[in-house]
Nucleic acid binder design. Structure first.
Length: 425
RNA sequence: GGAGAGAUGGCAGAGUGGUCUAAUGCGGCGGUCUUGAAAACCGUUGGCCGACCUGUCGGCCCGGGGGUUCGAAUCCCUCUCUCUCCGCCA
């Protein structure tokens, strides 16, 4: 959501900036309704002021026992009352239309974001390590995992449907090790506070972070209760401070949260159907920051590095890509994706997406802070990054550390949790 | 799931139809006193929106929404949440 008065004063800025994202927004319509709304408000408030005066004087007359005069005064308010009712009704209609229009307008890209029309225009900002070299043909992770008996794809489909995974034995343990390792890195080394959030959230929470109202078809919905399964811990964690006015001394707030994540992946049918590349339920450690505006782009860099450090510690080759304008999401202004190399499938896999939302989510959720004593509250900036998503990370580990004899080396940071340095059949 | 009670400012807590423009206390902030601090005393104390003569005026906010009334924190309806008891349950 954007600042209404900035939209009024400089609509062209928003129209052009949103066009850079290859999106469109009904800004003229919004401004037209806004102008009508303000006119109605002004007239309404004048009438309300008059009604307040009239009521007070009726009270005074009754206090003096002047019943007849009070009755006469009451009659006179009828017309005013009717006019107020009509204006209130119109104002309510306009407010609800304005609200839904505002919620449907995307955030604007930061000026530093490279212009582009698609994936091919993303910019590589750095890489870590080198693709591993094999003296045999590296296998995709689903072959490795099935051979080792650590993932049962068929059972997942039987129990729930395609895109649901059963991890078994050392596979399940590897999953647990990754979660433990990542949480440990972020809480002990990077100063994040651990949060364990609910998996079901209400409509208001989904609206704050931007999944609603536009992307309901991507979510699993519990209709009876009007609750939604979270697609990422970003949703409950960002909403921790919904409707709060934080003290400046509390900022920056840094949270690390493990959760399951649930995505319908509507519209992605047929894409990346094999193995762990695209699943309906997955585990992830998510990093969320709530910060003062002047620090948010610095915080975004350190946030991205905190996510990168997970991949570095595991010795995986990856690249950090800056998304071009067309590849940004609805809610963010700037985005880095971390793509880890998976030699078996021969592709870079997106395991993390770091975003700055500036005050876009904060406005939707009324997340504010007071810059100093006696100062007016301001909207905070919110950011998040995966730190990182488990299934594709596991795919990259299995494929990177596979050996010709079908065993898989366990990278050193995971060995204490795994109790072994090798997974073999 | 059943029965009951409740939701008021940063916190505690009064207010049951008309100077409520929300008492009082605590806390916070400023000041007086003091070498300094404490105590005492004095003052002060939120959010949102609109209008324009940009400093003032006006409107809204007592859990959310709707209603009754000239007038609602107060009465009615409804939703949400909290607490107590009962039932069920990992």
């Amino acid at each position: 959501m954007h600042d209404r008065s900035r939209l009024r004063n400089d609509p062209d800025f928003y129209i052009k900036a949103i066009a850079r994202k290859r999106m469109a927004a009904p800004i003229e319509l919004l401004l037209q309704l806004d102008a009508e709304w303000r006119a109605v408000r002004t007239a309404l408030e004048a009438d309300q002021a008059e009604m307040n005066r009239a009521s007070r004087s009726i009270g005074a007359l009754l206090g003096q026992g002047k019943k007849d005069e009070a009755e006469t005064a009451k009659q006179k308010t009828a017309e005013l009352k009717a006019r107020i009712a009509v204006q209130e009704e119109r104002a309510r209609e306009l407010e609800s239309e304005l609200r839904s229009l505002e919620l449907s307008i995307p955030n604007v890209p930061h000026p530093s974001v490279p212009d582009g029309a698609g994936e091919q225009d993303n910019v590589q900002v750095r890489t870590f390590g080198e693709p591993p070299v094999f003296d045999f043909e590296p296998k995709p992770h689903w072959e490795i995992a099935e051979h080792l008996g650590i993932i049962d794809f068929a059972a997942g489909s039987k129990i729930s449907g395609s895109g649901f995974i059963i991890y078994k034995g050392l596979g399940a343990r590897l999953q647990r090790a990754l979660i433990y390792f990542m949480l440990h890195e972020h809480t002990e080394k990077h100063g994040y506070t651990e949060i364990y959030p609910p998996y079901l959230v209400n409509r208001g929470s989904m609206t704050t972070t931007g999944q609603l109202p536009k992307f309901e078809e991507d979510l699993y919905v519990m209709e009876r209760d009007d609750l939604f399964l979270i697609p990422t811990a970003e949703v409950p964690v960002t909403n921790l401070h919904r409707d709060d006015i934080l003290d400046a001394s509390q900022l920056p707030i840094r949270y690390a949260a493990f959760s399951g994540c649930f995505r319908r992946e509507a519209g992605a049918a047929g894409k990346d159907t094999r193995g762990l590349l695209r699943v309906h339920q997955f585990d992830k450690v998510e990093l969320v920051k709530i910060v003062a505006p002047e620090t948010s782009y610095d915080e975004m860099e350190s946030l991205t590095q905190d996510a990168e450090s997970v991949l570095e510690s595991l010795g995986l080759h990856f690249r950090t890509m800056e998304m071009c304008t067309a590849e940004l999401s609805f809610s963010n202004t700037k985005q880095y994706d971390l793509e880890v190399w998976a030699p078996g499938v021969g592709k870079y896999l997106e395991v993390s997406s770091a975003s700055n939302f500036e005050d876009f989510q904060a406005r939707r959720g009324e997340i504010r802070y007071r810059p100093g004593p006696g100062e007016k509250p301001k909207y905070a900036h919110t950011l998040n990054a995966s730190g990182v998503a488990c299934p594709r990370l596991m795919a990259a580990i299995l494929e990177t550390y596979q050996r010709q004899d079908n065993s898989v080396f366990v990278p050193p940071p995971l060995q204490p949790f795994m109790g072994t340095d090798s997974i073999s059949a």
